[in-house]
Simulated scan of single mutants.
Amino acid sequence: MAASGPIYTANSPIPVDLFVSKKYPGLTRGDIGFADSSGDVIYRVNRTQHQSKSNSSQRRKRVVVVDSAGNPLISVYRQDKGLWQGFKGDDGEEKELIFKVNRTMKTLTRTEFEVFLVDENSEDSASHFTMKGSPFQKSCTIYRGNSIIAQTSLMYKLQQIYVRRNKFRLTIFPTSIEPAVIVALVVIFLD
């Protein structure tokens, strides 16, 4: 009698877990670290203020996703209340737009966003992803259509009455989207 069930090959892609905390060694105050299961920080997120070149008196909130070697990968600027834009690198100029994020719902217990990836040839009007969840519970699920591409969850332990929210898990499921983009989206969700 043959057993029926999924067959996993050695080269099939598996989800990747990153552990998110502000308490990793080497992080400065205000930085957030995304570490692998060995505790090595893969991504670091810096929060800064940025002076707008068009209006020298205007300062905008900026988040920079940096890799383990210190190279800036993505700069995220908060445009207005509920609007963000992500640019490639961090040269101080907004040159290569990667994505736009628009908050569509915000209540006490639920927040939802639409994410628009920017194509080099044209800007699509349909959203590519949706993010839904509760920032207070560190619960965020990123969907592409009906498929989950990433999800955050608190770190529960057996026999623990109170679950601390200072460290949580980000699970990235196999996808063609660069993990740094997913990290930037999670930071936007928790902002």
Results as ranks from 00 to 15, higher is better:
residue 91 D to Y: 04
residue 96 E to W: 05
residue 86 G to Q: 04
residue 85 Q to R: 13
residue 98 I to M: 14
residue 97 L to I: 08
residue 87 F to R: 03
residue 73 L to I: 15
residue 79 Q to Y: 02
residue 87 F to G: 03
residue 94 E to R: 15
residue 83 L to S: 12
residue 72 P to C: 07
residue 86 G to R: 05
residue 77 Y to A: 04
residue 80 D to P: 00
residue 82 G to D: 06
residue 93 E to K: 12
residue 90 D to N: 15
residue 96 E to V: 11
residue 80 D to K: 15
residue 96 E to N: 13
residue 82 G to C: 09
residue 76 V to D: 01
residue 79 Q to P: 00
residue 92 G to A: 10
residue 88 K to I: 07
residue 88 K to E: 15
residue 85 Q to Y: 00
residue 84 W to V: 02
residue 74 I to S: 02
residue 71 N to C: 07
residue 81 K to D: 14
residue 96 E to F: 06
residue 90 D to M: 02
residue 100 K to I: 06
residue 70 G to N: 10
residue 87 F to A: 03
residue 74 I to N: 03
residue 81 K to M: 07
residue 91 D to W: 03
residue 99 F to P: 00
residue 89 G to L: 02
residue 67 D to T: 09
residue 78 R to I: 05
residue 96 E to P: 00
residue 82 G to Y: 10
residue 91 D to C: 01
residue 85 Q to H: 05
residue 90 D to F: 08
residue 93 E to R: 12
residue 75 S to F: 07
residue 84 W to S: 06
residue 73 L to N: 06
residue 71 N to M: 09
residue 90 D to S: 13
residue 85 Q to N: 11
residue 88 K to T: 04
residue 93 E to C: 01
residue 75 S to V: 09
residue 73 L to C: 08
residue 92 G to I: 11
residue 70 G to I: 08
residue 88 K to F: 09
residue 94 E to V: 06
residue 81 K to L: 10
residue 88 K to W: 04
residue 90 D to Y: 08
residue 77 Y to P: 03
residue 83 L to E: 12
residue 100 K to P: 00
residue 94 E to N: 12
residue 75 S to C: 13
residue 90 D to C: 03
residue 69 A to I: 06
residue 98 I to K: 10
residue 81 K to R: 13
residue 76 V to T: 11
residue 81 K to H: 10
residue 85 Q to M: 07
